[in-house]
Design a protein around this nucleic acid. Sequence first.
DNA 1: CGGCCCAACTAATACGTATTAGAAAGGGGG
DNA 2: CCCCCTTTCTAATACGTATTAGTTGGGCCG
Lengths: 361, 361
Amino acid sequence: MASSERRRRPTQVDIARRAGVSQATVSLVISGGAASDQIAEATRRAVLTAAEELGYSANVAARSLKGGRNHLLGLYTFEPVFPTDQRDFYYPFLLGVEEETAAQGYDLLLFSSVTSAADRSIYAGGANRLKLADGCVLLGRHVRREELTALVKEDFPFVFIGRREVEGGEISYVAADYVSATAQMVARLAALGHRRILYLRAAQNSEPTQDRTAGYRRGLAEAGLPFDSALIRTLDDPAEVTGARVREWIGSGVTALLAEPTEDDRLVAALAAVDRSGLVRFPEDCSLALLGDPPLWTGESRDWTRFSLPRVGMAREAVRLLVELLAQPAHTARRLSVPCEFVPGDSIGPAPAGRGPEWSA
Amino acid sequence: MASSERRRRPTQVDIARRAGVSQATVSLVISGGAASDQIAEATRRAVLTAAEELGYSANVAARSLKGGRNHLLGLYTFEPVFPTDQRDFYYPFLLGVEEETAAQGYDLLLFSSVTSAADRSIYAGGANRLKLADGCVLLGRHVRREELTALVKEDFPFVFIGRREVEGGEISYVAADYVSATAQMVARLAALGHRRILYLRAAQNSEPTQDRTAGYRRGLAEAGLPFDSALIRTLDDPAEVTGARVREWIGSGVTALLAEPTEDDRLVAALAAVDRSGLVRFPEDCSLALLGDPPLWTGESRDWTRFSLPRVGMAREAVRLLVELLAQPAHTARRLSVPCEFVPGDSIGPAPAGRGPEWSA
DNA sequence: CGGCCCAACTAATACGTATTAGAAAGGGGG
DNA sequence: CCCCCTTTCTAATACGTATTAGTTGGGCCG
């Protein structure tokens, strides 16, 4: 800041001039490593001294242009991660990605441009910004498939947190084993004597929902219970779930509910409202288990029976997988499935033996 | 992924070949803007079509190498931001930086490499990684001055969140007005009749501490109270603050405490312990005000009288300042001071009229 | 018909680094 | 004294884009 004139950053050429060597020599010394032992010790020191004096630092863009890696991992989310109301849900993922990225010696690039929901796109502006990073971790429920397909087609290395499938390519991912977790939940309920278990399903037919559905059916099959498609309810509007409605279901013979939390938390909120209304007591009148973590874990809400994603661990695994991908010459998809943790909670219990007349439909 | 052979990303040259034009023309069409209206409409369409068909996306490294800017803002913290125990303190800064970065159309680069405390340095590996970004927001209490000096010397654009000074250069920053906030706090206590106000000062003599000290003295002066250097206590170990100790102080005539929270929260924890012990009642026996936010705001702790930093706002301002810096041809330092918000709380009250014999020292 | 200007394009170059082929110097063996 | 090898360095080039100066061809004016 001594003079106001625009100062150019020192380059290897400047160092070369000062040390009386060629730019190539500087490059060999600086980027060190393998080929640098063919440099005389005196020269090497001269170069390093000059670099020091000039305050040299490598131009990462140039380095990366040349084809080398630039030691950046990207994190791209299909939903905004930071807004406070979703903070508690996404934070562990963020935390895990950050930790493991650092542990692997990379820096983390958060793609945040154009948070305005509509424009939130990988391919905004004609430039695929993701490619500034060596590879990318992707996250989020509302995936735009075309973009994923394009990424796969371009052979860009990325790992999704959560199972995602796309036509015409294999996607690497770290996914929670919703199938087993859901099946086990059904098994637990069956062991408690439940026969008619209603599954409240998310509206969007994303992979996590498909997996839970598969787990539901598998659980029923393994418990020897019949499958009744009327017992899968897709909710367009979670507000439909009211005390009266739940009582109707109970009247029709349902003794347990499985609820799939959505990222907007409205279903869980509706169920909590039913709980507080006193119209239905969980688990005395009806058992209730959540197929995942409620996004907003306020701490004041009930301790629902549920299973829980190891989110920090998943995120760390995703980064590890990504780094492995980068080391491979050809990108073959890698997949990892991690088990969910069962949280006992207090909202399931034995199936009621018989119903009084007040429950008749 | 159709074939396992490594596929090269399409470049402007590929497009040019396909569209039967030159690379320069492609560049003009793609990067659009001003000079692109000298291109015939037919040509432009041909180029765009070819780009589309090839799935072109610009190489950001090359673009940035050429133009100098790559639309990245960096965030560098001198302490780890993510670890959960400091999460609540730093999160608002992170949030603000992220929001405003996105709003300004930049992406955010988190410098996380080498979180291992010792190696956590801007100049790790001989290359100043910060410079991958166009500019940088810095954050944290445990600053390494040499690094700041070097950054200034290199004329790298950055903004510190918090006032930081360094010899041989002007640093841009967004700072909370600790001076006024502290002075006002003293004024408040003086108005309540307090005459001997003990200031518990942080051990490290960083700028925030200097500002509070200045505010303390200014507040005393404006209230017409004498300055007594014995009333400034530097605590090497916050554990020294015990109920007995506070009673000693009270015995020596002190009627109010000003405490400067440290980022490890130990002082506030010690005071909370004193409060819980019942040995001293705040504010009946002694008034107590915090000169800032306790880092760990658990919600269960007392509602201390204090002032509070507009952290999200400060972070956003820092990003705005940074973007302004980038627009300037020559970097002149820019500074911004934002007021703190007074939080009444319940830990200050009128000075006790007289003391019983149990308080004598 | 010659000169000139304009529209539409292209050739050439710079950006900073990594890498490779090869040059220059020095030494040792025949 | 020549040849070859080793050590140590350099020249040249590629990476993909943006930009500037310049080229081409055609139309218009005098």
